[in-house]
Amino acid sequence: MGLLDKLSAWLGGGRAELTVLVLGLDNSGKSTMLNALRPPELRAQHVMPTVSHQQDRFQSGGVSFSAWDVSGAPRHRALWERHYRAAHAVIFVVDAADHLRLVVAREELELMLAHPDMFGRRAPLLVFANKSDAPHALAPMLVAAALGLEKISDRPWHVCASSALSGAGLADGVAWLAAQLRDAHVPKRN
């Protein structure tokens, strides 16, 4: 029984939960984004830098997600690859106002996509050009160009401006992701 069969069995059972990996450099707003996706009563007042990783759950478009939020600190980035195998999709959060580190984000993204556990899989990639409300923030298309997303041909990707603090743009991006995963996993059931 393959991975996809297992998945469709879960989806058929109505308890569909897909693992999505939330990646990005430190201070790009990963935890804040997940915090904004929570119901209002469960939101944390202050988001602290994540050490190692934490898990969070949210729902969109009839798909429930189990999100792995991993630390983006340079010395923890080597641990990202441990989660690749289990991930059905990747959310990559970029600080669109941090022009200096766009190259670093690009490098990390390329390393991730070239990893044996990620390469050749059709796991969708959602890029959030976060902090879009900050002064000097780049437009999502410019972020896509800076990250070299146009070169990705082996998986669906989508870039989306967002502001994790206010929650703007998050729902759109997550809805795209849910639609992608439904398309990929639901037909298998029949």
Binding site: L25, D26, N27, P74, R77, A78, D98, L100, R101, V103, V104, E107, E108, L111
Partner: peptide, 25 residues
Amino acid sequence: LGQEEHVLIIVSGSGNLMLKILKRT
């Protein structure tokens, strides 16, 4: 520089600013 620990800042003779970030790997 910024939030990146390993940045090489070069000011060239013609007055340009060049920034190079050391790869994590």
